[in-house]
Simulated scan of single mutants.
Amino acid sequence: MNDLSLSIAPHRIGAMILRYWYLLLSSWPRLLELMYWPTLQIITWGFLQTYIASNAGFFARAGGTLIGAVILWDILFRGQLGFSISFLEEMWARNIGNLMMSPLTPLEFLLALMTMSLIRLAIGIIPMTLIAVWFFDFNFYSLGLPLVAFFCNLIFTSWAVGIFVSGLVLRNGLGAESIVWTLMFALMPLACVYYPVQVLPHWLQLVAWSLPPTYVFEGMRALLIDGTFRADLMLTAFGLNAALLLASFAAFIALLRSARRAGSLLSSGE
């Protein structure tokens, strides 16, 4: 795998996607897990919002903000996890060394992981949104075109984080695997998923506004509560995501080179 090459061969990307797709279909627990946690989340938080809405005027007026936040958070988290799990499958199978010696380029590898991220995300999110309609009368798709901006920004952030943590695991081995599961949760309080930015202390607000997801969740609340689509928030988020994706790709290449120098590609254990 030539880490300097930016050329793209669709047939190599397709081969990697097909590999991950067969791997996914070969195990029904993998498929079940993709739907289980999003379903559990929407049911738990949906009933909580139903209770709050019947006992608090604000949440009755801002109906759907909690369920909407749960769905958007799951897009962010599952997007990153879908990317990283496909990468970890190669680590667990001790197949990284084989891929690195193949004609597959880093960009092709990452594009295949991004595609699998979308496939895994669709398997989990679509049932989740349908349950939101059936159980709680919240149609996530009624957000309309703003939903496209919300989704794109969140998936771009999830890919940036996924690329970065995959590079860390590539360089440090499976001993660094825990960061795949924990990093996004560390960002969760600062992304202001369930509450507005104003809740945070002033100095933390500055940190929160440096994260693209913060703009998405603020935009979602503005749309559901005030009926206003904040295009300015989405454009800022797109700009931040572009910078994050470039930085994450550069970090992945640097960590790949470091792993090669350290000889850790063929000994990617604990």
Rank of each mutant, 00 (worst) to 15 (best):
F150W: 02
P146R: 12
L143T: 09
F150Y: 12
W134P: 00
N139Y: 02
I131N: 10
F151P: 01
L143V: 09
W134N: 07
F138P: 01
V148Q: 00
M128V: 05
F136Q: 07
F135K: 11
V148F: 08
T129S: 14
A132T: 15
L145C: 01
F156L: 15
S142E: 15
L154Y: 07
T157M: 13
M128T: 04
N139M: 06
N139T: 04
F138L: 04
G144S: 06
C152D: 00
L130D: 03
I155D: 00
T157S: 14
T129H: 07
W134K: 06
L154S: 09
F151I: 14
F140C: 11
F150C: 05
F136P: 11
L130W: 13
F150P: 00
M128H: 04
D137I: 00
L145G: 02
F151V: 15
F150G: 02
F136H: 14
N153C: 10
L154N: 05
A149W: 07
P146N: 12
D137L: 00
A149G: 05
F138M: 06
L154F: 08
I131R: 02
N153E: 02
Y141N: 00
L145A: 10
L147I: 09
L147C: 12
C152P: 01
I131S: 11
V133Y: 02
Y141E: 02
T129A: 14
Y141P: 07
N139Q: 09
L130V: 14
L145K: 06
F136Y: 10
N153H: 06
I155N: 01
F136K: 13
P127V: 06
L145I: 12
P127W: 10
F150N: 02
L154T: 05
L143D: 03
F150K: 01
A149N: 01
T157N: 10
V133K: 07
I155G: 01
L130A: 13
F140Q: 09
G144I: 00
D137R: 11
F150H: 14
V133R: 03
P127E: 03
L154M: 11
L147T: 10
L147P: 10
Y141S: 05
